[in-house]
């Protein structure tokens, strides 16, 4: 889990508005290679938006975002090529509904990387086996449980050999008994040294796996620190209130 000192993702003075709403306010955040950063905070705090700006699913109004020292491409083929390097896992899985599980995983490699079919399928089967859904390869997404779908979504991202992965509330749409099967896959990825930015409400995951916890509220980063620092000695009132409210039940 040791992170070396190259910031792979850098955000400098990032601002974003939705009309009147100032959803991201002067965000400064560096993510080191191999680091696992967890974004937490109350709903509406801007953590999902922040996560989505990193692969430009959300544009920003001002400031800059650098990946490996270069500003994000703004459009076209360059942007698509950049996104191919960043994995993304969504709250609602977003598997391609009309394609089989296997095709979901091979589509990216075949269409974007130009991997030959046989090779792409072999690798996809390995990935599906790794996340424990190899038997489902020829089903369509709707035939799988939420937990299985989300693991396929992770395999789909991994098939692109991403340099970093974004997780936007990956377990929030899951039934409780399925959360752990997804978290386990994420823990494994983290242990293998994947650079990860994770928006989540799973405090146990944050504590166990992350190198750094970033707490957001009202579009601002209120505080950040190691999981032990943050959970045991939160510095701001907002963070204390937030932690109390989730421990309350």
């Amino acid at each position: 889990m040791a992170a070396d000192n190259t910031a792979i993702i850098q955000m400098h003075h990032v601002d974003k508005h939705y009309g009147e709403l100032h959803v991201l306010q002067d965000i400064n955040l560096d993510v080191q290679k191999g680091e696992v950063v967890v974004l937490i905070g109350p709903s509406g705090s801007g953590k999902s938006t922040l996560c989505r700006t990193i692969n430009r699913l959300e544009t920003i109004d001002s400031g800059e975002i650098l990946f490996e020292g270069k500003p994000l491409p703004e459009e076209g083929k360059e942007l698509a090529a950049y996104r191919a390097e960043i994995g993304m896992v969504f709250q609602s899985f977003n598997l391609f509904a009309h394609k089989s599980i296997l095709d979901n995983v091979t589509l990216g490699p075949r269409e974007v990387l130009g991997t030959p079919k046989a090779e792409a399928e072999m690798e996809a089967m390995e990935l599906l086996a790794r996340v424990g859904v190899a038997e489902q390869a020829h089903k369509v997404p709707a035939q799988l449980s939420g937990g299985q779908q989300q693991r396929v979504a992770i395999a789909r991202s991994l098939a692109m050999h991403p340099k970093a992965m974004l997780f936007d509330e990956p377990t929030s749409a899951l039934d409780p008994e399925m959360i752990n099967e997804v978290l386990e896959v994420m823990v494994e990825l983290a242990q293998e040294g994947m650079t990860m930015v994770v928006v989540t409400h799973e405090m146990s995951f944050a504590r166990r796996v992350s190198n750094r916890v970033v707490f957001m509220a009202d579009g601002q980063i209120m505080e950040e620190g190691t999981p032990d620092e943050f959970f045991d000695h939160p510095k701001t009132e907002r963070a204390k209130d937030f932690l109390d409210s989730i421990r309350g039940h």
Partner: peptide
């Protein structure tokens, strides 16, 4: 077609036409 389908396709690097 749900917006998430497009976003997922974008995130694996497909171009607009594809």
């Amino acid at each position: 077609v749900p917006k998430g389908q497009t976003e997922a396709a974008m995130s694996i690097g497909l171009t607009h036409g594809k």
